[in-house]
Design a protein around this nucleic acid. Structure first.
Lengths: 352, 352
DNA sequence: GTGAAAGCGCTAACAC
DNA sequence: GTGTTAGCGCTTTCAC
């Protein structure tokens, strides 16, 4: 396994063939599970492999086969729990198909998002799962080539590729309806958009929130729509203390993600407001931690596992087809996970 | 860019060469920035490239060059914030060297940890950064080959490769000393090991905790060493409520990671104990969120960035050397980040 | 300055 | 059943 110098011996098919006294093609057949071989030959080949410590050279195999069994996942930031958990799912699903995942973290940087696309074209990987944040539709059109691609979200719907869509509007609506049916009459949204209008998660979730209020004939109070720069717990806490300071009253909070919700709950407690007795809280994302907090958090599960599964499977299908699939919306099922932060019951049919 | 069928045209160096009326070697030279070329040739080649939309085939290049500019990172679970943030750092550092990262999530499964090692030997990547949890020293010895390898932690010190070591003992000692010097006289450890003895983070951190108490001549109360199965906030909360129920008194808590600390703080608040006025809390990991909570969390920063940097750079060095580096301990600097959960001042020299 | 040619290590036809 | 062979697309001597 090591040569006289102690350096790595580069054992090739050729070496194994020579040692086993067969041809290189036979060894290759053996490696690939070709069935029509004599038991004797199989054994000699295996012996040679063991003795020499041969391992197939993946790069050569890739070149020859034209695929790498590797796919790229491009996300904004692993530090955001949502994306980390999404990446975890993608890696797991990919593994089921014997695929590896190159994770590219673009850091909310359009240039880096483009970069991961460039890399793709170099055919180091078989396909790209792209979760774009900053890329404009203009950049989008630069996504040339027809390598397998799946876009997460609808922010770049100009691109001609399958899009996997979280139903932000309906899910947010369901979350809000749930609060109403649990008895809340004055519901704030934390992390929302004061002036919705684009396709960001922020805007869409606000849209769902408003739709729910309207459906129940409840007034939409602009002061209860709290936009925050970040979506972390500090921002959530801040939104609450601001509202309290402004003398606003509310009995329910829909937080646009779970981190915000944690901050919301923490700050409410801090100010002596009991959750859920006085104020009920619902989050969005269903990150792992949301089940462990006190109170545990009612939240929207956006269907991460399904997103990962659909994305990977679409890529593989495209690989098989030999080209990119056409533009299409693939909508993922969401669900409302009811926990202690809101004792009510889920609202069925928010989608209708 | 697309052929008559609309399928991907597979543009090769050959095609570019033909279109530009030069040899394939010249195009290759151009692609690699070879300086001695006539301006005229350069231009013709560039035109052909633009026109045909040529992109180099990375796989072929890899085979020829013998490297992939890809490295593997094998960690237990991206769902754990610590690992997600570590992965993020590794990806960033790798990018600085124009390297991509294949993230393998082993899910606390020894078989998968071995698997990522197998993959490595297939030379799909230039090196492996392995954060082992379950792999025994016995498995370790199976890590044949001398491909570039860096092991994170000391749990597998039998392996002949560089190990990057977080100074668990000293860091935990520093955290505990900090609590003492801040006035705490009765300090609990949450997530510790009732019966330390191996090289797990749990045991080492407990060791540091005990060492600090001894140094200050404080008694070690076994009832204040709370072992928890998981290291999440629920476990932290549980440990606190258990201790309270048992009638134990304490004025400081060293939590073995930040998630535990969050649970600890949350439960203390829940029970009407004020942090830090009545009980001070220190965590471990310095995850992003620890700065956003209320109160913000005093915690040990294990030096993730440096870990990532040292790991990637060691891999690259090994790649250049053409073989694995010998066994060595590379110790990373830690620091105590002081925040609101403990108003004291950091203790200098806990290491001595 | 540019071209020709020899592989990198493998797979998959196709012989026999 | 097994051997032979033609490349996959590229880099890199080495001529000229």
């Amino acid at each position: 396994m090591t040569d006289a110098n102690g350096a790595a011996a580069r054992v090739t098919l050729h070496d194994v063939a020579k040692a086993a006294g067969v041809s290189i093609g036979t060894v290759s057949n053996y490696m690939n599970g070709y069935p029509y071989m004599s038991a004797a030959t199989k054994e000699r080949v295996q012996d040679a492999i063991d003795q020499l410590g041969y391992v197939v050279n993946g790069t050569a195999r890739n070149l020859r086969r034209g695929v790498t069994r590797l796919l790229s996942l491009s996300i904004p930031d692993l530090t955001q729990v949502y994306f980390a958990e999404l990446a975890e799912e993608v890696i797991q699903v990919a593994r089921e198909y014997d695929y590896g995942v190159i994770v590219e973290s673009t850091g909310y940087d359009a240039a880096r998002e483009m970069h991961s696309i460039q890399i793709m074209s170099q055919r180091m990987t078989d396909g790209l799962i792209l979760s774009p944040l900053k890329l404009s539709d203009g950049d989008a059109r630069k996504i040339k080539g027809d390598f397998p691609l799946v876009v997460l979200g609808e922010s770049m719907f100009g691109v001609d590729a399958p899009h996997i869509i979280v139903q932000n509007i309906y899910a947010a609506k369901a979350a809000t309806c749930h609060l109403v049916s649990a008895g809340c009459r004055s519901i704030a949204i934390v992390g929302g958009a004061v002036d919705p209008g684009n396709v960001s998660a922020r805007s869409l979730r606000t849209e769902g929130y408003v739709a729910a209020l309207r459906e129940y004939g409840l007034p939409v109070d602009q002061r209860l729509i709290r936009e925050t720069g970040d979506w972390n717990s500090r921002a959530g806490a801040r939104a609450i203390s601001d509202m309290m300071q402004e003398g606003l009253r509310f009995d329910g909070v829909f937080a646009c993600n779970d981190m915000l919700a944690f901050g919301v709950i923490s700050q409410l407690k801090e100010m002596g407001v009991s959750v859920p007795a006085q104020v009920q809280v619902v989050g969005f994302d269903n990150i792992d931690e949301s089940q462990y907090t006190t109170p545990s958090l009612t939240t929207i599960d956006p269907g991460r596992r399904q997103i990962a599964k659909l994305a990977v499977e679409s890529i593989l299908e495209q690989v098989n087809q030999g080209r990119r699939a056409p533009k299409q919306r693939i909508e993922v099922e969401y669900s409302l996970v009811c926990r202690q932060s809101s004792p009510g019951f889920p609202v069925i049919g928010a989608k209708g």
